[in-house]
Nucleic acid binder design. Structure first.
Length: 738
DNA sequence: CATAGCCGCCTTTTT
DNA sequence: GGCGGCTATG
């Protein structure tokens, strides 16, 4: 009856999880423990036991995971089960209860780019110094407040210093501008839903009746807002089943709170806890490697990884010269597998940062190795796509001033910057949106008559499009593309690829039209706003997959290659300062390792080009932890291969960069430079003789200095300098340096 | 008003 | 090294 939810071959503990009926359930599921299958089987079992499908709500981490689950449940009986991400669920709830939430249902969802524009405008309007309150930092700050469900009023009440009070003003203004634009950012979707559930018990109960059974996957990566939403939805009935693995929590930086899963039993005292510790995915050698690695994390619940797939498998560690060499040898290894007839679908390459795909892609192209880069949002962030979408956003939400500004500027049409600036002034004075003000631009004397005329024409054009915006999206797109003048402008400029990209966008929209029950512009825009990187992964592409370690979560491959195991990269530079961050990096590597079924190859490069600079690198400490003995053996072709032989124990981590005849600095330390004066160390890249020190000087400038050339002095330890204490007082504190 | 060229910025991971 | 924003110029 169900495509992949046969319960015949389940283990005892899996069976327990599947057939647990009512009440809270915590499933601690290790990697490769068949968690997805268990959830799918559980949904099927609930339906079998008489629960109505539309009474079940399953929350997955990505749209892709939701899709996968729908496929597993592909039976007529399961139709109606609500399966989506937290964000999609929130969009549905907010549109359904828009009035109660105090919003309009046709809201725009702002991506990072639009958020930044909005925050820049905010900081400008608050009239504060952008160097002390940089928009990107403010965005991060505000985002954290929202993830913790702290409202403007709450934050204002506890902000007592200048910095806090200014941030409170910025937070308030940002929310006001978002509201004027009838827009929400990713955080707003969660917070507004959480507040709605908190403030409206009637709606909360209605939703509890609607969803009598709640399942939340990847629970270790929920943030506080998501946690409250899940709790709110299940409060009335307690039928909440959460699954996850604390060792795979990799979104702490985004507000994910590992405590949510660790403390589940406190929230729901009658919770049943089931551990899935058997691993059906990886061969023993790979599991041993993963086990050894994660044992170095101090903050964790001990969990077993029990191998069931039998002995064997391969783990190799390779040292390469630089990123080009690393990529070439990687291509070579993959080519060998391909020559043996291995399907490229079974292979994947993981890396820490997106920019690392470049060298690999170049090597793959040279060797004609078919590959896919799993980076879905990349397509949607292209200029021409964003331009095209700005028209559609404006049509769907006439209050969206950010869309208005973008749409008017997609190509030259006689509306210049000064006209737009004056229109903005006019709109502000008269309390209208830009589009509304544009209709009467001629009445505003300060706008040049020619410009005003063009602006009015533009507004009429958008009205014309809006009249056609009833059902399917792709026909509307065709019209907008042609009649907006964008198509002609791109053709005239010879932007062939841009035109092709837009055509691809229209094709994708046609697909959306075909697959959606009642296709409409609003649903389309909201679905692409919540589109994520991992959604682009096609398991049947017939290509080797390239992706970040984050995107690899939830996937598995027979052959896994992880590149760039270097200090500063994995663990990442920005994560080395705190122990918690370092542990998260280790979990990230753990996630990568445990994706492998049969073979894992890990590599690092001795030199790597970073920010255009060729610098020496140090092998990652994680390599030592998984058993890289540090004894390099040169083979004939200068390729160095290590077989893990000697293993470290978590207690005996050697100081890898122990020996030093060079000076070393640590963050926050005061230093003095002969030319730039006094400053504070922000970062220290320990690269032996080539070490780099990043110093923020009193002048406000931050400089990266090569240690061997910079001649930095430590105030206080020098000969003719006054004591360090006095120097510290002379130094102007930057509120962000902490 | 539009464009070209230059300067200065950042550069982790993502819903 | 790559992009976005600003400025000077046509």
């Amino acid at each position: 009856m169900y495509s992949d939810v046969s319960t015949e071959q389940l283990t005892d503990s899996q069976r327990q999880a599947v057939f647990h009926r009512d009440g809270p359930l915590l499933v601690l599921a290790g990697p490769g423990s068949g968690k997805t299958r268990v959830i799918s089987c559980r949904i099927a079992a609930l339906i079998e036991a008489g629960v109505r499908p539309d009474n079940i709500c399953a929350i997955t981490f990505t749209n892709k995971a939701a899709e996968e689950m729908r496929r597993r449940l592909a039976g007529r009986i399961s139709n109606g089960v609500h399966i989506s991400t937290f964000h999609s669920l929130c969009v549905r709830i907010l549109r359904r209860y828009a009035e109660a939430a105090g919003i309009r249902p046709n809201f725009s969802i702002y991506d990072t780019n639009e958020q930044t524009r909005c925050m820049k405008e905010t900081v400008r309007q608050c009239d504060v110094d952008t160097s002390n309150f940089p928009p990107a930092r403010m965005l991060e700050f505000v985002s954290n407040l929202k993830n913790d469900l702290e409202s403007v009023e709450q934050y204002r009440a506890r902000a007592d210093d200048y910095f806090g009070k200014t941030v409170a003003r910025i937070y308030a203004m940002y929310q006001q501008i978002m509201e004027q634009n009838n827009a929400m950012d990713f955080d707003d979707l969660l917070t507004r839903t959480a507040f709605l559930l908190r403030d409206r018990p009637d709606i909360r109960e209605e939703l509890s009746r609607r969803f009598g059974y709640l399942l939340v996957d990847e629970y270790q990566d929920t943030n506080h807002a998501q946690y409250q939403i899940a709790k709110g939805l299940a409060l009335a009935h307690g039928n909440i089943c959460v699954t996850g693995d604390p060792d795979q929590s990799i979104y702490r930086w985004r507000g994910a709170d590992i405590e949510n899963i660790l403390a589940f039993e406190k929230d729901w005292p009658n919770a049943q806890v089931i551990r899935l510790e058997e691993n059906f995915r990886s061969m023993s050698k790979i599991l041993e490697t993963a086990d050894r690695l994660i044992a170095f994390n101090a903050i964790r619940k001990h969990k077993m990884l029990i191998a069931t797939r039998g002995q064997g498998g391969r783990v190799d560690i390779f040292a390469r010269t630089d990123e080009r060499d690393e990529a070439c040898q990687l291509a070579e290894q993959l080519q060998q597998l391909l020559d043996e007839g291995v399907n490229p679908n079974r292979m994947a390459v993981f890396y820490r940062v997106n920019s690392m795909s470049r060298a690999v892609e170049e090597a793959f192209i040279r060797r004609h190795i078919p590959y896919q880069v799993v980076r879905g949002v990349e397509f949607y962030s292209r200029k021409e796509i964003q331009d095209m979408l700005s028209y559609l956003k404006l049509i769907a939400n006439p209050s969206d001033d950010i869309a208005f500004v973008r749409a008017t500027g997609t190509h030259s049409r006689g509306i210049g910057k000064s006209s737009v600036d004056r229109l903005i002034e006019y709109a502000k004075k008269s309390g209208q949106s830009l589009l509304a003000a544009a209709h009467s631009a001629g009445k505003e004397g300060s706008i040049r008559p020619a410009g005003a005329k063009r602006i009015e024409e533009f507004a009429k054009m958008i009205d014309g499009f809006a009249a056609l915006a009833g059902g399917e999206v792709s026909p509307l797109m065709d019209i907008v593309f042609a009649q907006s003048g964008l198509a002609d402008a791109l053709r005239a400029a010879g932007e062939q690829t841009a035109i092709e990209n837009i055509n691809e966008l229209i094709n994708a929209a046609a697909e959306f039209d075909g697959q959606t029950e009642n296709p409409n512009l609003l649903d389309y825009l909201q679905s692409i706003a919540l589109y994520s990187d991992s959604d682009a992964y096609d398991p049947d592409a017939g290509r080797v997959s390239l992706m970040t370690l984050h995107a690899a979560k939830g996937l598995e491959f027979d052959y896994v290659f992880i590149i760039g195991l270097e200090e500063g990269l994995l663990p990442h530079e920005r994560s080395r300062s705190s122990k918690d961050d370092l542990e998260e990096e280790r979990r990230l590597f753990f996630v990568g390792v445990t994706r492998a079924r049969e073979a894992l190859a890990v590599s690092y490069a001795r030199y790597r080009t970073l920010r255009g600079q060729f610098i020496r690198s140090t092998p990652s400490q994680f390599l030592y932890e998984i058993g890289y003995a540090g004894q390099e053996q040169e083979t004939a072709d200068a390729e160095k291969i290590f077989e893990p032989e000697q293993y470290l124990t978590p207690q005996a981590v050697p100081d890898i960069c122990g020996q030093s005849d060079y000076e070393r600095f640590s963050p926050r330390q005061l230093v003095e430079h002969s030319k730039f004066g006094l400053g504070r160390v922000k970062e220290f890249l320990d690269l032996g003789a080539d070490s780099v020190v990043v110093v923020q000087f009193n002048s406000g400038k931050t400089k990266s200095l090569m240690l061997k050339y910079a001649k930095l002095r430590r105030p206080g330890s020098g000969t003719n300098l006054s004591s360090g204490k006095e120097e510290a007082q002379r130094y102007v504190e930057d509120p962000f340096l902490l």
